[in-house]
Design a binder for these strands. Sequence first.
DNA 1: CCAAAAGTGTTCTCCATACACCCATGC
DNA 2: GCATGGGTGTATGGAGAACACTTTTGG
Lengths: 232, 232
Amino acid sequence: MAKNIFVPNPTSVTVDCVVFGMDARSSDLRILLIQRELEPYRGRWALPGGFVRFDESLAEAARRELDEETGLVGVFLEQLFTFGDVGRDPRGRVISVAYYALVNLDEHNPQASTDARSAAWFSVAEAPKLAFDHQGILQTALARLKGKLRYEPIGFELLPAKFTLSQLQRLYETVLEGPLDKRNFRKKVLSLGLLVDLNEFETGVAHRAARLYRFDETKYKQLKKKGFLFEL
Amino acid sequence: MAKNIFVPNPTSVTVDCVVFGMDARSSDLRILLIQRELEPYRGRWALPGGFVRFDESLAEAARRELDEETGLVGVFLEQLFTFGDVGRDPRGRVISVAYYALVNLDEHNPQASTDARSAAWFSVAEAPKLAFDHQGILQTALARLKGKLRYEPIGFELLPAKFTLSQLQRLYETVLEGPLDKRNFRKKVLSLGLLVDLNEFETGVAHRAARLYRFDETKYKQLKKKGFLFEL
DNA sequence: CCAAAAGTGTTCTCCATACACCCATGC
DNA sequence: GCATGGGTGTATGGAGAACACTTTTGG
């Protein structure tokens, strides 16, 4: 196949993934980083990612890299932004299509998922300085997460399948960086009619056990088709 | 410069621009297309765009191509999405970073802006079949425009600097595809405090002349810093 | 029995909506 | 004087915001 004949200015394309995780108990927001084993930026922490292959789409590349470097599969993944400033990679012209992923740390255990030798979760507030322009990518991802949380039901991706209303509220308070009124929050969330009361209760807590709910994805998709707008 | 040494899988990167224009009088939404002079898809209409050069950022490339192919400069331009499916370009692996631009057809005259031989404005509803996957890019851009119009003041980019409230309303009605109540629309728009009444009036109309307003960009930027959210 | 978080209703304010007529201008 | 769009106010209902106490459970 004469791929390169019509292709001026060959350029490398990478994908980089900002992986957000939420510990449902401590409810602090974390990101998954890997320590670079090669130059440039050897030893520095960076977003998981790598070069896009000829025979895979961008989303496929992002999922493959995520699997290879962190062991994560089947997670929520969405394109974020494409970074292509001239000097962003010292190796030459490298354009990075950034993705962000949402996982919950209970079901995707930090330790167990670490196929790569040096992947680790960092609290967003305490993240180290990152390689390349990954700091900027992280900031962009945080802004996107904050913005989307309000009008799309992506928060549930950060929680276990069964969760309590307090967990959901703490998630929103953490990401949006502000307190929410408990009664109003519950009223609003339940009024959407998208949570299924499982009639089960959390265990192992030293206080009244909270009811468990799950998000009704099927119902949401139906409503969305009819023009329904999620908003919290 | 040893650009290619560390660069596996050389791939071409293009930018493509979805240019939206609004004729303030007829208030129908148009896009700017160019007719391809080269294979593949020779003779077909396509989005303006081209290959990214080594020494320019993605946004710079988009502006350059826009200037070269359509004569447009200084317009609103924002990254839309990156398209990288394997078979999207018959020439080989070409990844396209799509941008969308907003211009108003009064100040950027359709004819005058046509440096390229065959650039033309099409009503979005009546656009021809496009080359490559540009149809999909257009759909994505339309969805983005519709979504952003509600909570960011980008509509003003489609109008002349001085505009009437009816023009603004028709713009919203066109893009959002639904009628709006005149009194409520005016009340809401004016209550934002972001329109400056110029105490001037439109001319050349066979009825009562409407007041002209301009959008107060400076004030908006100040408010935005303080956490203000535009919403219509 | 104490600590810790779960769970629950009402009031008030404000904003979105619905709705119809007179005004100014060019022809 | 008539056709065309410009411009204006009010009443109603519903949603968001503020707010405090009782319940349940484990230790």
